[in-house]
């Protein structure tokens, strides 16, 4: 049964989701952690913590450090590996009738291919987000995301092996994010998501040592929002595939900024740590906004940004 509210459904590269609010990988665990705090069935989709071919122990502690209006993390993609993910985590995630998107990480192109195959065969996921942008691991990740040829190659190889919608997650740690976005579009990506975290660091001046054992970490939270928004706006103008906006979204107003400049959907990351029901609060806030502005369908709002400011 459909309620009388505005239409919130969007299409993110062949995956139809009931509203444009997703969880950002690595900030929502494997779902179970949040069950006591929100109605998970209301989410547009769940993007799980990144998964690699083999289990990864992650980086040494300390792994996080707060910085003004944001946080640095260097978790190092701790995860139980794709086999355990399929066997132990997916069945739980599936019970909510919410699309599940796996976030895939690899150190080599072969890793990406193998994980893609295993996840596609498992029939347990509805889409793949390919993480070619993790700044916190020694090998893989960002290396693929910052070299256009490598980004193209990973996209093409992954697409060849799966019928699932493929979202390529981009790093902001590049000179021209639009170039990478165009390249992965050419490689066959169904959508792009951006941004992953910005590489940063923080120093303990008393001891003259880094605050993070990994020395550098990825910056997230409100501090990155203006940069994320600018990048989403630029990329949305350059590519035809859907763009999913990520970065410092704390509330519905932040999410609406991204949608207006062209994001087809948004992911909520760090906000989940501060308010475990941030995602559902944002869904409610977007709906209220649409009602207030008499917009019947969210797709009539997406990309309506008036750069020249002529509308008023």
């Amino acid at each position: 049964m459909k309620n009388a509210g505005p239409e919130m459904q969007v299409d993110i590269g062949g995956l139809i989701i009931k509203n444009p609010v997703l969880t950002a990988s690595g900030t929502f665990g494997y779902g179970s952690e949040y069950v006591p705090y929100l109605d998970i069935t209301r989410l547009g989709a769940i993007i799980a913590k990144g998964v690699s071919l083999e289990p990864r122990a992650g980086n040494k502690p300390p792994r996080i450090m707060e910085t003004p209006c944001g946080m640095l993390n260097a978790i190092g993609l701790e995860n139980p590996g794709v086999h355990a993910f399929i066997k132990e985590k997916l069945p739980f995630l599936r019970q909510f009738s919410v699309p599940v998107i796996a976030n895939v990480f690899g150190e080599t192109i072969d890793d990406f291919k193998r994980v893609t195959e295993l996840l596609s065969e498992s029939k347990g996921v509805d889409g793949l987000e390919i993480n070619i942008s993790c700044p916190n691991v020694k090998k893989g990740g960002i290396i693929f995301g910052s070299d256009p040829d490598m980004a193209h190659a990973v996209t093409r190889e992954v697409k060849r092996l799966t019928d699932l919608p493929v979202i390529i997650k981009l790093t902001p740690n590049v000179t021209d994010i639009c170039l990478i976005a165009e390249t992965v579009e050419e490689g066959g990506a169904d959508a792009v998501s951006l941004i992953n975290t910005l590489t940063g660091m923080s120093v303990d001046i008393e001891r003259r040592i880094p605050h993070l054992a990994n020395v550098t970490g990825g910056l997230s939270g409100p501090a990155v929002k203006p940069i994320a928004l600018r990048m989403v706006w630029q990329v949305a103008k350059r590519v035809k595939i859907p763009v999913i906006g990520i970065g410092g979204i704390m509330n519905a107003s932040d999410a609406l900024e991204f949608l207006i400049v062209g994001a087809r959907a948004v992911q909520i990351g760090t906000a989940n740590f501060i308010n475990p029901s941030a995602t559902t609060d944002i869904i409610d806030g977007i709906e209220d906004y649409l009602k207030r502005h008499n917009i019947d369908d969210i797709n009539d709002l997406i990309g309506t940004f008036d750069e020249e400011g002529n509308a008023c």
């Binding site: 900030t27 665990g29 949040y34 996080i64 450090m65």
Partner: peptide
């Protein structure tokens, strides 16, 4: 005590090393 972000097990930011017998340690 460790620095925390979420407090509910989701971010993996607050880990400590445990002995696992193999000496490699487990978080």
């Amino acid at each position: 005590e460790e620095r925390m972000a979420c407090g509910i097990g989701a971010c993996l930011g607050c880990t400590v090393l445990l002995k696992d017998g193999g000496g490699r340690g487990e978080h």
